[in-house]
Simulated assay, not measured.
Amino acid sequence: MDAVEDGQSYTVTRDGREIGELVPLRRRRRFVSRTEFAAMSRTSPGFDLERLRAEQEAVLDGDLDDPYAR
């Protein structure tokens, strides 16, 4: 387990037949610096709020039922 924690992966076998893999979990970062966020935002595609709303209206039913009204 120490080796897996350090990044090593293993193939699990039964009777010489591969049946699985033991791999380290990918850890996701929870914090992105303001500078890094700004750099990513500069290269992101544009966002059209009006187009998004129009697409939502086309797909969603405007008359949502109250789930508690039974």
Rank of each mutant, 00 (worst) to 15 (best):
M1P: 03
M1E: 08
D2T: 14
V4E: 00
E5V: 12
E5S: 12
D6Q: 15
D6T: 12
G7C: 10
G7R: 08
Q8G: 00
Q8V: 15
Q8T: 14
Q8I: 09
S9H: 07
Y10T: 06
T11D: 09
T11Q: 10
T11C: 00
V12Q: 02
V12R: 00
T13L: 08
R14M: 05
R14F: 02
D15G: 09
D15L: 03
G16Y: 04
G16A: 06
G16I: 03
R17C: 05
R17A: 09
E18I: 04
E18C: 04
E18H: 05
E18M: 09
E18Q: 12
E18Y: 03
I19A: 02
I19C: 01
I19E: 04
G20N: 02
G20D: 00
G20Y: 03
G20Q: 00
G20H: 05
G20K: 01
E21W: 00
E21A: 11
L22K: 07
L22A: 09
L22R: 06
L22N: 04
L22I: 15
V23R: 12
P24Q: 06
P24C: 03
L25N: 13
L25K: 15
L25P: 02
R26P: 00
R26G: 01
R27F: 01
R27A: 09
R29C: 01
R29V: 04
R30F: 09
R30I: 06
R30A: 07
S33H: 06
S33R: 09
S33V: 01
R34M: 04
R34N: 09
E36T: 12
F37D: 05
F37S: 09
A39M: 11
M40F: 13
M40D: 11
S41P: 06
R42N: 05
R42S: 12
R42T: 11
T43W: 00
T43H: 07
S44Y: 01
P45I: 10
P45C: 08
G46M: 00
G46D: 14
G46S: 15
F47R: 13
D48M: 07
L49Q: 13
E50R: 15
E50N: 15
R51S: 07
R51M: 08
L52F: 15
L52N: 11
L52T: 14
L52I: 14
R53G: 04
R53V: 11
R53D: 03
R53Q: 14
A54D: 14
A54E: 13
E55M: 12
E55P: 01
Q56M: 14
Q56F: 14
Q56N: 14
Q56S: 08
A58K: 13
A58L: 10
A58D: 10
A58F: 08
A58G: 09
A58Q: 11
V59H: 09
V59Y: 13
D61N: 11
G62M: 08
G62P: 01
D63P: 02
D63F: 04
D63T: 10
L64R: 13
D65G: 06
D66R: 01
D66K: 07
D66I: 00
P67M: 02
P67V: 02
Y68D: 08
Y68G: 06
A69F: 06
A69Y: 08
